[in-house]
Design a protein around this nucleic acid. Sequence first.
DNA 1: GTCTATACATGGATAGAC
DNA 2: GTCTATCCATGTATAGAC
Lengths: 231, 231
Amino acid sequence: MTPRAAATGDKAARAAEAKAAKSAETKQKLIDGALRTLVEQGIAKTSARTIAAAAGVNQALVFYHFGSVDELLAAACRQGSQERVALYREQLDKVTTLSELLAFGREMHEQERAGGHVAVLAQLLAGAQTHQPLAPATAAGLDLWIAEIEKVLVRILSASPLGEFADPVGLARAVSASFVGIELYEGVDPAGAERALAALDQLSVLASAIEDLGPIAQRAVRHRLRRSTRK
Amino acid sequence: MTPRAAATGDKAARAAEAKAAKSAETKQKLIDGALRTLVEQGIAKTSARTIAAAAGVNQALVFYHFGSVDELLAAACRQGSQERVALYREQLDKVTTLSELLAFGREMHEQERAGGHVAVLAQLLAGAQTHQPLAPATAAGLDLWIAEIEKVLVRILSASPLGEFADPVGLARAVSASFVGIELYEGVDPAGAERALAALDQLSVLASAIEDLGPIAQRAVRHRLRRSTRK
DNA sequence: GTCTATACATGGATAGAC
DNA sequence: GTCTATCCATGTATAGAC
């Protein structure tokens, strides 16, 4: 009960409040339904009808509350991404080395995959390619992930000999997009995707080896890099 | 005209032959139409009707020639991937260094992107996630790309100090899937994708620097790598 | 705020004429 | 082989009852 309704004791105010609560509840059901439908049926079969069925509400409510299916999907994408990213933010803030990041990234990927959350972004990305209205919301959802990864990369790379040659802004985008791609690949060839992830794991060993190189070897690498980028 | 028809001079045989040619032509129109529809309208709007419209033939012919929309899409995926990969095979066979591969990969990506060919795989991958019948054909299409990239990686890595720590089979899969992911990202944020690709370009400089390291520094890196992988 | 009913478009698939 | 016609399911969107 809001202070206003309590203070006035106004019956009409309390009723309005109850309605607002009900409305928020239905909206939430629809958002959850939209997320579940995207994961379970894919963008191709995601419609007002299938979402409403998953949400357990009437199909007409999609249009009443969100105006269109697209806007419901946009809202779902926003909320879904925000929730997921918030879950990992704290842990990500503690990551300090490249190999830690890669290990954590793999764990995170596994969890998201299991929960079907990467799939939401993948399906929306596929849909947005040819359906402009979905693009801004999808980009925004992906950007939440990118921003987190970027923060970590900036922190890590500035302390590494690779720092002056790598662009954390671009790499964060490359990594995020790649994870979506690998998720999609996983859907058609799980064994192949497993092998791909294992190969990346192995590469991380290489990266951390460079990080831990002795000062002389590091200088050699750094020198070599400067020479190649200058020309 | 087949030898048989020519030899017999049989009118019925010639007629049958003409029909077969017409059939093949229509099938081809449908396959081309399917590819164009996937690119221009996405998996969500790809249907027997939209494909037939793009192909300029009647909608019922999808079912007559392919049995179902899924099977038409599978055929289109197969043929499309084969054609595209064949286009690059010769050039890929000439690639001998990691930086050459990365430069070529970027060029190839640009071309495929412009022609909308990566988009076909991306849309089918998205569709296959929740629609099993599409999965085998999609995986097969992607595998054609993977196989080419794998061949090149094997060749390159065996001649590099990284060779004994990197898995070309897994990396080929990771790279292929990542390209699809970046393609999808490009659809919702072209500037971000451009930045991502630029960052990867920069990383390639790093890789080639390691390849060109002097013998002493290389030994240090190699030694360091052995130590990290052993534990 | 929510539901039922309803309109109208699009999609999958088949039968039968040509 | 191809086309027209057709059936029926699904999808978007709105109007009006409760």
